[in-house]
Design a protein around this nucleic acid. Structure first.
Lengths: 207, 207
DNA sequence: ATCTTAATGGACCGCGCGGTCCATTAAATA
DNA sequence: TATTTAATGGACCGCGCGGTCCATTAAGAT
C-alpha cells in the first residue's frame, strides 16, 4: 500500500485545491451557502470544471471547507500551561483565547457552520462542536481540576468554572464578530480584560 | 389623514399575516434563507399569492420576520431591579437573562440575522444589534454605575463589567443553541449557575 | 339583494445555478 | 520525441424557485 507508485502525465496542482477551498471559505462566510460555483471558480482563479475534478459536488466542497477550517480551531486549543501555577497559567490561557477570538478565525468557522445547507444540529455540526469548542472547554476544566487536586485552587465544579471563565473572557466578542460588526481592540485592552477576568476568577477560586 | 375611512368589501385576515410571519421565521431559522416561498405558504396554510399580497418580495417578508422577532428580544431586556441592592438585583437580572437564553427565543433571532441574504455587517444587522443586545448591555452598565455611585459596589469600568457578567452567565449557551445542539437545564441548575456568577462578581466588586 | 375585496390554487414564465460534456492547450513522465 | 493527465473555457441541459396572471370562490360592507 505504501508504494509511491509514480505515474505518468501532468501532476495535479495542490495550489489550485488550496485556492479553491480558500475562496469558497471566504465566500461562504460572507455571502452564505448561496454563492454559485462559478463565483467560487472565478474568485479562486480556476475553471469550474477544475472544481468538479477535485470535489464531486457542492456539498463535498463545503465539507472540505469546514474540515479545513476546523483544523484552525483545533490548533487554537491551548495545550500550554499544563503545569503552570494558576495565576500565570490562567493568564496565558486567557491571552490565547482572546487573541484567537478577536483575530476572527474562530468566528469564521462558526459562521460557516451556520451557513450549512442541511438542518441545524446535523452530524457535521455536532462533530465540529465536539471536536473544537468542547475539547477546549474540556482542556481548561482538566487544568482546573488539576489545580484543585494540587491545592492551588478551590474549584468544586471544574466544568461550570471553565464555561464561565471562557464566557466572561468572550463577552460579546464572538457574536459581534459573527455578525460582521467591527471590533477594534488594542493589545493593551485585551491584556487588561484578561487580567480583569483572571483576577475575578481567582478572587473566588483562590486557595 | 387620520380619518378611519372604512371601505367596502372583505377585510384582510390579520391571522393570515401572523401565520405567514410565524412560519417564515421558523423555516428561515431552521433551514436558512434558502427555503422556497411555496414551502412557507404551505407551512402557513396559505396560498402563495396571499403572501405576495401582503409582502411584495421575499426580502420584504424577511424584513418583517426580523422586525417581528426583534420585538421579542427588546421585550426581554430587563428593566426591573433598577433600585434593588446589588446582591438581589444582580441575581434577578441573571435569572432573567438565563431564562430567555435557554428558552431559545433570543438565539433564534441571532440565527435569523445570520441567515440574512445580503452581506454581513449590513444596516439590518447593525440596527438589530444596537437595538437589542447593546441596549441590554447598556442597561446593566447603567445599573452597575448607579451602584458604584451609591457606594454599594466598586466598579471602575461598568461597560467592561457588564460585558463580562453577561458573558460568564452565557458561557456557551447561546452558541450551542444557535448550532441547534440540545440543551437540558433544570431550573435548579440555572439557579445554581446564576448564584455562582453573582457570587464571583461580588467577590471582586463588593464594596 | 349587490358590490367590493380577500383568498385560493393552478398554470405559467424566466432565470440562475448545479452539474455535464467536449475540444483544446499545458505540463509532466517515459 | 510520444504519451498521459491536468486544466481551460465555453456550450449545454434540467430543474427549482421567485414572481405573475387569472378564473373562481368566500366573506364582509351597503
Amino acid at each position: 500500500m505504501g508504494a509511491p507508485r509514480r505515474c505518468r502525465g501532468r501532476r495535479p496542482d495542490p495550489a489550485k485545491r488550496a485556492a479553491i477551498v480558500e475562496a469558497a471559505s471566504a465566500l461562504f462566510c460572507s455571502h452564505g451557502y448561496g454563492v454559485s460555483m462559478e463565483t467560487v471558480a472565478a474568485a479562486a482563479g480556476v475553471s469550474k470544471q477544475t472544481i468538479y475534478n477535485l470535489f464531486s459536488t457542492k456539498e463535498q466542497l463545503f465539507g472540505a471547507v469546514v474540515a479545513s477550517r476546523s483544523e484552525l480551531i483545533v490548533a487554537a486549543i491551548p495545550t500550554t500551561a499544563e503545569t503552570l501555577a494558576p495565576a500565570t497559567g490562567l493568564l496565558r490561557i486567557a491571552g490565547e483565547y482572546l487573541r484567537v477570538m478577536v483575530g476572527g478565525q474562530v468566528p469564521v468557522v462558526y459562521r460557516l457552520m451556520l451557513a450549512t445547507p442541511g438542518e441545524t444540529g446535523s452530524d457535521l455540526i455536532r462533530a465540529f462542536y465536539d471536536n473544537g469548542p468542547k475539547r477546549g472547554l474540556g482542556h481548561l476544566a482538566h487544568y482546573l481540576a488539576g489545580c484543585d487536586a494540587a491545592g492551588s485552587l478551590r474549584v468544586p465544579d471544574p466544568a461550570l468554572a471553565a464555561e464561565c471563565f471562557f464566557g466572561m473572557l468572550n463577552g460579546q466578542i464572538l457574536i459581534r464578530n459573527m455578525l460582521g460588526l467591527q471590533e477594534s481592540w488594542t493589545p493593551e485592552e485585551l491584556e487588561a480584560k484578561a487580567r480583569y477576568c483572571v483576577d475575578m476568577f481567582l478572587a473566588t477560586h483562590g486557595a
